[in-house]
Design a binder for these strands. Structure first.
Lengths: 355, 355
DNA sequence: CTGTTAGCGCATTCAC
DNA sequence: GTGAATGCGCTAACAG
């Protein structure tokens, strides 16, 4: 592939030494310039920068990491099984996409790289896998996504190693940053939207109880329905984010004597299930039944009708996480909990109440 | 976030030294064991492995990279603008997903990590960006995706640096590996499928001429149509993979005196355009018009009707690329061009010819 | 403000 | 077969 038959792996062509020589300063001064360190005369700084430019010098990540206190790496952990499954099935993976978008770009802004790692939650070796990644990579920060977000063992591990971390889509927690949207307010907004359309009997399918967000969404739903004086506990059905559970919950709701005229599903998959069951039972959406989804993936826009949905700010959350992790100063106290704004995207699955 | 106020960044807790001490051997012996080096007695090897296990030792990537000839990193380059655009618009990005799937998993099998980098083809600084990444990361291999795949400047740069690289979705080229599917055969399969359904007037919308694959698909189409004795050059319309171009080409085709009864679009976006224009003109698909897509993204399965499509083996291509790059030996000659099998997925956008 | 010294953790020469 | 030096490229202490 190369013209040399046995190219002895070239060492880095131009190192900090060459730059130092070119600029007529010491290594350390060059290092200071690179790292925006203090105590460099503007004149010297310029000289060094010119040398860097001229020689096309780029610092070696490995050397910086080995020597210094920072690796310039952010590690994003994701659950392997559902991710791979989504890719294999060709469903794509909106969470991952948005996380990549927000996390990589923001990391790059700071000269960092975001590495993306899939971790087997179900293998029983999850902690070891993460530990190995930590040891090998020495990332300056770790981004956790659901369901790892709520995993205490992971948080403990990270705390033990003293690696700053951020949990996406989760409030509270003892350590690390938590970055989420206001799930309760989002549920509330969904209710208000439907109530404004005249709906009074609104069904709600909950998410997996393992997720903090599920509780919040339910709480927001309850509070707001109560406020509107139309809360009926019989219209709340348990779900777990999956299509299957969503379909079952929908069937139960639609089988009621006085079925709901609208259903809020705590996940996109479950919203699809509501749509599927409605179609199965020849119930017109949105004419006879309105649906609100709690996820806004590409799929939601392609269904018939396109689904009204809560859009989670996943990319902004990842971006915020990256920035927080990169800029944490050890001693400084910082706001640990961040709430980002959601959006309610109104499409064609919600319409005025027929009755 | 941590309990220590100013934690002096912990150095790696357990290093090769500790393992050496534990096993009662020298550093190098441990190193040999880690790297599957020769000249280690099985007994010693076991002892060392036990020590590694016991101490939970994991080698530092940075140290290995700095010291050794390998970085254990594969760099996957993607075009920034369309990728970010796809994410922003919430269209997702099937290419990226599949590349991640194939590339990351296969890299992990070899103890490698795949890093994913977005590069600005349009900034004019693309080469510098790539060069900087090369210098900083020193990857052991680079995976190129379309359109970088066909970019000679990038290939030259990589060759100059002596970094092995693989071009996905491209045949030929002077340097590096090229891994692709047989585009001509795929086009041929699409034609055969339609011909088998009785179609004789089959329209073809080409891809961007910048892509080698476009030529191949067109050639396959022409040859096979010719073989079936129904080639009509008037049914070949230029496109560029985009929805816009696809829509225009479709309009031209449908405006013909004797319009085609089936259309093969060289990309998924263009297939969607065909579908869109057909709907606009109230032409029933597949009853009055059959459509074959040259991409099988999640979207293709959700359209009405779901599209018959050629499925490119993107994940396998990425996996093959990773494996080739990781296992290249300097001196050894190796097969540089690899063709992977495609699939024709028959869905509901193709039906027997109405006439 | 700048330079000097000393490693970071490992692989790569070489000796033995 | 195994061990002892040497240095990768850089940053962190310190000294001046």
């Amino acid at each position: 592939m190369s013209d040399t038959l046995n190219p002895p792996r070239k060492r880095q062509a131009v190192t900090i030494k060459h730059v130092a020589a070119e600029a007529g300063v010491s290594l350390q001064t060059v290092s200071r310039v690179i790292n925006n360190g203090p105590n460099v005369t503007p004149a010297v700084k310029e000289r060094v920068k010119a040398a860097i430019e001229k020689l096309k010098y780029v610092p070696s990540l490995a050397a910086r990491g080995l020597s210094g206190s920072r690796s310039y790496l952010i590690l994003a952990l994701n659950d392997k099984e559902p991710t791979v499954e989504g890719w294999r099935e060709g469903r794509g993976n909106d969470w991952i996409d948005q996380m990549l978008l927000g996390g990589m770009l923001r990391s790059a802004d700071f000269g960092y790289r975001m590495l993306f790692e899939l971790v087997d939650s179900h293998s029983g070796k999850m902690i070891e896998q993460i530990e190995a990644a930590l040891l090998s990579l020495r990332p300056d920060g770790v981004i956790l996504t659901p369901p790892h977000t709520e995993n205490q063992a992971i948080s403990d591990l990270l705390s033990r190693y003293g690696v700053p971390f951020a949990r996406l889509g989760s409030r509270g927690g003892e350590d690390g940053f938590s970055i989420a949207m206001d799930d309760a307010a989002a549920a509330s907004a969904a209710v208000d939207h439907l109530h404004g359309l005249g709906h009074r009997r609104i069904g709600f399918i909950t998410g997996s109880p393992e997720y903090r967000a599920s509780e919040d969404r339910l709480a927001g739903f309850r509070d707001t329905m109560h406020k509107h004086q139309c809360l009926d506990e019989g219209l709340i059905e348990p779900g777990d984010f999956s299509y299957q559970a969503g379909a079952e919950a929908t069937r139960r709701l639609l089988a009621l004597d006085n079925p709901p005229t609208a259903i809020i599903a705590s996940s996109g998959e479950m919203a699809l299930a509501v749509l599927g069951v409605a179609r199965e039972q020849r119930i017109a959406v949105p004419d006879a039944l309105s649906i609100v989804s709690f996820d806004d993936t590409p799929t939601m826009r392609l269904t018939l009708p396109p689904l009204t949905a809560i859009r989670q700010p996943i990319a902004p959350m990842a971006a915020t996480a990256a920035e927080l992790l990169i800029t944490v100063k050890n001693g400084e106290a910082q706001e640990r909990s961040h709430i980002l704004p959601f959006e309610l995207i109104v499409r064609q699955s919600t319409a005025p109440c027929p009755r």
